[in-house]
Amino acid sequence: MQLELGGKTALITGASQGIGEGIAKAFADEGVNLHLTARNIDNLERIKSEIEGISDVTVMLHPLDITQSGGCAELAEQVGDVDILVNNAGAIPSGNLFDIDEAAWRQGWELKVMGYINMCRLFYAKMKSKSEGVIINNIGNGGEVFDPEYIAGTTGNASLMAFTRALGGSSLKDGIRVMGVNPGPVKTERIITMLKKRALSLLGEESRYMELVESFPMGRPAHVDEVTSLIVFLASSRAGYSTGSIYTVDGGISSRRSIG
């Protein structure tokens, strides 16, 4: 299938590792020029080098903290116009209501929840002026699985799901498509850290975290490319009638309903 993305330009936030890195490389494989932003300049430079070594695309780096006052606006000014925005930055801390104090809760939401909203506000306006663009919010199935041990994340993700549907519900009138992707557990350093924390809480030992993986569909987390391939497809004209929707990639976890 030809996705016809060659020559387009994408901005990816949180692009220095994990799913963000995978998204960048997947778009590069399709000939998409990239603007990558994150706080970790060393990782960004590594990714730029790896992409430019195998792909004939332009990679621009924007190392900054979008939670700082004016950070999103500064990024928008540096980047200019793009065809595709992928909001991916942010890792809301895991834990229950009493594990996550107000400062940690607000910090997690500032980057992910408010970060996504602010980036959409800025780049939607740019795209509207051209009557063309795609915004994809990488959210997470925590917004569908109401886990008390991930209470700040489940609440934040559910908010972003509602925001994405609200914005994307009428965005085609402006020539823009807005969608969300909800990965479940994905094989990244972040999920390993979360699993170890949960294993300590539930099983008494971090080293037993692989016991938690046994309950996942197929006995494993998702592979990164099982998520990034969907994101790239949604950004393409092949998904041209899709907007205001959330696409879940969690092996069926959020669809499980049982009284026993």
Rank of each mutant, 00 (worst) to 15 (best):
K126I: 01
L160G: 01
H35Q: 01
K48V: 01
N137L: 03
E144C: 04
G204T: 05
Q107Y: 15
S245T: 12
C120W: 10
F123Q: 01
V86H: 01
G180E: 07
E45K: 14
G153I: 02
V145G: 02
M179E: 09
I151D: 11
I151G: 06
R165H: 02
L212Q: 10
N43H: 08
V186Q: 05
I100N: 11
G22Q: 06
M119S: 05
C120A: 12
L64I: 03
P183R: 03
K25I: 01
S255Q: 13
R190E: 12
A103R: 15
L61G: 05
I19E: 04
G219V: 02
I19C: 02
I100C: 08
Y124Q: 09
T9E: 10
M1K: 13
Q68I: 06
M179A: 05
T58Q: 15
S229T: 11
H35E: 08
L203E: 12
T9Y: 07
G95F: 10
V79I: 03
G6H: 15
D174C: 01
S94M: 14
T37L: 04
N137G: 00
L111M: 12
F163Y: 07
I47W: 02
G140N: 05
S171A: 10
I12G: 07
S159G: 12
F216E: 04
G6Y: 14
V249H: 00
S255T: 09
R208K: 15
R238S: 11
S236I: 06
K130P: 03
E74H: 10
D99F: 11
S131A: 12
F233T: 03
V224Q: 05
R46P: 00
K173F: 14
I92F: 08
M60H: 15
S254K: 07
G115F: 00
E132D: 13
V113M: 06
V227E: 06
G95D: 07
T9C: 09
S254W: 07
L3Q: 05
L11N: 02
D225K: 14
L97S: 14
S242C: 15
N138L: 09
R177M: 07
L230Q: 03
L111Y: 06
M194R: 12
V227M: 08
A125E: 15
E214W: 08
G14S: 06
I117W: 13
S131M: 11
T67R: 07
G53C: 03
K197C: 00
R256D: 08
S201Y: 14
A222Q: 13
L61F: 05
